[in-house]
Structure formats: structure tokens, C-alpha cells
Write a protein that binds this DNA or RNA. Structure first.
Length: 310
DNA sequence: AAGCAGAGCAACCGCTCTCTC
DNA sequence: GGAGAGAGCGGTTGCTCTGCT
């Protein structure tokens, strides 16, 4: 077994023989790796590690480079738009982190995976349902994602009515019957103006809103609200804007928040199964039994009356 | 102020896939 | 076609930080 966990085939030397380092990278190691790659390029990681004089495995060098040292890697909090994209893509592909990461410029699979595990799975745990369960997936599809769209739109509207974020969210909503108040989730559509009326969180500013219109803009962060918790707690205000969810009134353009175009044609909510039982309390006994567990999570909605009866 | 618990995240592990000979 | 090596992926671990008691 070599240090890569592949049986020592790469070098034929044991970890002791190579005196390999493990654990956090030092600044010196980072600089060594950066300089070497700048000169020689990346690839052939095992030989690269040796030639660069790094007492690291090739695997470790590759990971460090791809996840942290690459010039185009983005660090920091996941934006609302990215959260939305992650939720959508995960619902589609599951734990295909690298594939998901391909659609989030500058984000690494590791970062997305960590985001999912720390944020999303946490909430699944709090809801006492499995992250892969239909229940949880429906929650994401019909509650969290529209909520995210709402927040993106609200944030964009607060700054510029035609900002890329607004366009993106409009297009997302336009492709998504959910937020248009489809029959799939009548309770949401009928949730009253408070449900749709949102207020931009104080943590969300023009400076930290982002778009994918340019990769540079991804540098913006949404630190204070970059959590599903905030979706639950989306403040109700007088900032009602029914236009947010008027699908069919939104012009579809090619300028999207997502460079991959997911917001205008990738979503397939029509194919998503409405789980009316989940929302309308089809099984009242069961729903009531679980209601406390499900809906007392972090003030989940600024709850609407009809949502409490789940 | 100290101890504890939980969250977040960097890094590692082990497996599989792909490429090369 | 088979074997070996490299690369990539998803899962897991463990350290650090932060907030709470």
C-alpha cells in the first residue's frame, strides 16, 4: 500500500522511504508547487511531486493545486445563485460532485461536496429525513429552490431591476411552474402575499450579489445569507412584488446567470412529481406527527398558517 | 475565563476509470 | 488483450474556529 492508497505501485517506495509529508500545506510548499507548475505545467503528478522536491504524494499535489492554488479557483461563500444551481444539479445528478462543479466556474468538487454535507445535509438531519428521500427532495424543489429564486430576485430588484441576477431568477422562475403557483404546490401559490413578499437581507448587498455573466463577478460573496437557514428565515416585509412569479411575462434571453444555461432550459420541474400529501397533509396523522420535527427547524418559513398543518 | 459542542473545511483514503506499453 | 501506472472521484476523517454555557 503506497501513500496514495494504491498499493505502492507509483514509486515502489514506502512512505517512510520517501519521508513524505502529510497534513496542512505550508506556504513554502504552496510556492514550490505554484512555481513548478508555472514553469513545467501540471500533470504527471507523482513525477511532478518528486521533481519539484515536494515531499508530498502526487495525489496530494494534485488536490492542493486543483482545489486551492489554481489561479481561477474561487474561494469563499457560495452565492445564492450557486446554491440554487447546486440544488438543481444535485437533484439531477446526485453526488456527482465533479460534474456539478463543472457548471460552477471556479468551484471545486470538494467545495461543493463540503457545502452539501455541511449545509444541506444538516437541514435534512434537522428535518429528520434522509437527504435522498423523496420528502427531502420535494422540500428542496418546492420550497427551498423557489425561496432561493425569490431571494435572488428580491436582491436584484433592490439594486437594479434588470441586473443579471434578476434576469437569471426570472428565467429560473419562468422555467419553473413551482414559483408560478402551479397546481403542483397550490399551497405555496396560495401562500399569500407574505410568502412571495420578500425583503433583501441586510447581509445581501449589491456588492456581494453576483452573476455569472462574467467569471470575475463570482468573486462576490453572500456571506451572511449563504445558508439555507436564511431561506427559512426570509424576512417578510412590505416589499411585495407579485411580478416576481409571473411566469410567461418574462422575456427569455441568452444572458443568464449560469454560463451553462441551466436557468433557462435545464430545469425540468414539470417532470417533478408533486407530493401533495407532503404539503396538504394528505395523511394527517402522519403529517401531524412529523410536523413538529419538520417545521420547527430554524423558524423554517416565517411559517404560513397552511404550512403549519403538514 | 475555561470547557465543551458543533460547524466548517482542508486533506486523506480507497476505489474505479483511463491511458500507455 | 492484459498489466501497470496515473488520474479522478466520492466518502471520510480530523483539525480549527466559533459560539454557548
Amino acid at each position: 500500500m503506497d501513500v496514495n492508497g494504491r498499493g505502492g505501485s507509483s514509486t515502489g517506495l514506502s512512505e517512510e522511504e520517501m519521508d513524505l509529508r502529510r497534513g496542512p500545506w505550508t506556504v513554502e510548499e504552496d510556492l514550490t508547487l505554484i512555481n513548478y507548475i508555472a514553469t513545467h505545467g501540471e500533470g504527471r503528478w507523482n513525477s511532478l511531486a518528486r521533481c519539484a522536491g515536494l515531499k508530498r504524494t502526487g495525489k496530494s499535489c494534485r488536490l492542493r493545486w486543483l482545489n486551492y492554488l489554481r489561479p481561477d479557483v474561487r474561494r469563499g461563500n457560495i452565492t445564492l445563485e450557486e446554491q440554487l444551481l447546486i440544488l438543481e444539479l444535485h437533484s439531477r445528478w446526485g453526488n456527482r460532485w465533479s460534474k456539478i462543479a463543472q457548471h460552477l466556474p471556479g468551484r471545486t468538487d470538494n467545495e461543493i461536496k463540503n457545502y452539501w454535507r455541511t449545509r444541506v445535509q444538516k437541514h435534512a438531519k434537522q428535518l429528520k429525513c434522509d437527504v435522498n428521500s423523496k420528502q427531502f427532495k420535494d422540500t428542496m424543489r418546492y420550497l427551498w429552490m423557489p425561496r432561493l429564486v425569490e431571494r435572488i430576485q428580491a436582491a436584484a430588484a433592490a439594486t437594479s431591476g434588470s441586473s443579471p441576477a434578476a434576469v437569471a431568477a426570472h428565467q429560473f422562475s419562468g422555467s419553473c411552474d413551482i414559483v408560478a403557483g402551479s397546481a403542483a404546490v397550490p399551497q405555496m401559490a396560495a401562500g399569500g402575499s407574505d410568502f412571495y413578499g420578500g425583503q433583501v437581507s441586510t447581509g445581501y448587498t449589491p456588492e456581494n450579489s453576483s452573476t455569472a455573466a462574467s467569471s470575475d463577478s463570482f468573486g462576490a460573496q453572500v456571506s451572511p445569507v449563504s445558508d439555507l437557514t436564511e431561506i427559512y428565515n426570509f424576512p417578510v416585509s412590505d416589499n411585495h412584488n407579485p411580478d416576481y412569479f409571473q411566469t410567461g411575462q418574462v422575456g427569455y434571453t441568452d444572458s443568464l446567470i449560469s454560463p451553462t444555461g441551466y436557468f433557462n432550459h435545464g430545469l425540468d420541474f414539470q417532470s417533478m412529481e408533486p407530493n401533495t400529501q407532503w404539503y396538504d397533509g394528505g395523511d394527517t396523522a402522519t403529517a401531524t406527527a412529523t410536523a413538529d420535527n419538520l417545521w420547527n427547524v430554524e423558524d423554517i418559513w416565517s411559517v404560513q398558517p397552511q404550512f403549519t398543518n403538514i
